[in-house]
């Protein structure tokens, strides 16, 4: 898959955080959400966005428990009903 998941994750964080909030961006799949300043509310919002991107229903997304970005990617791919091929396509589903 060509899609750079870290880049997509950073774009979704930008969307989920308040527009002028300080945002830390991940540089690798091993980055932990907590270290990036992603709080519990951010996690909920991020999961809603990713659920729409990957075509995963809300009930399934509520079961998501992840520590790293790789955990998030694995969860999404294991439940996806749609897999975006590009960042543009993914962002087009939530903007």
């Amino acid at each position: 898959m060509d899609l750079n998941f870290v880049e997509l994750f950073n774009k979704i964080v930008d969307l989920a955080k308040p527009v002028h909030a300080a945002k830390s961006h991940a540089s690798s799949l091993d980055a932990e959400l907590q270290d990036l300043g992603i709080d519990s509310l951010d996690t909920i919002l991020i999961s809603i966005y990713f659920g729409d991107i990957y075509g995963i229903d809300e009930e399934t997304m509520k079961q998501m428990r992840v520590t790293t970005i790789k955990d998030l990617q694995d969860f999404l791919l294991s439940h996806a009903t749609h897999t975006p091929q590009t960042i543009e396509e993914a962002m087009g589903r939530v903007q």
């Binding site: 308040p18 527009v19 002028h20 909030a21 509310l41 909920i44 919002l45 809603i48 729409d52 809300e58």
Partner: peptide, 20 residues
């Protein structure tokens, strides 16, 4: 809204305050 938490206005307000 799919994001009911941030349409509870006290939570929306808290997020804005923090960002400012």
């Amino acid at each position: 809204y799919k994001m009911p938490l941030v349409t509870l206005t006290n939570i929306f307000g808290g997020r804005i305050a923090s960002s400012l």
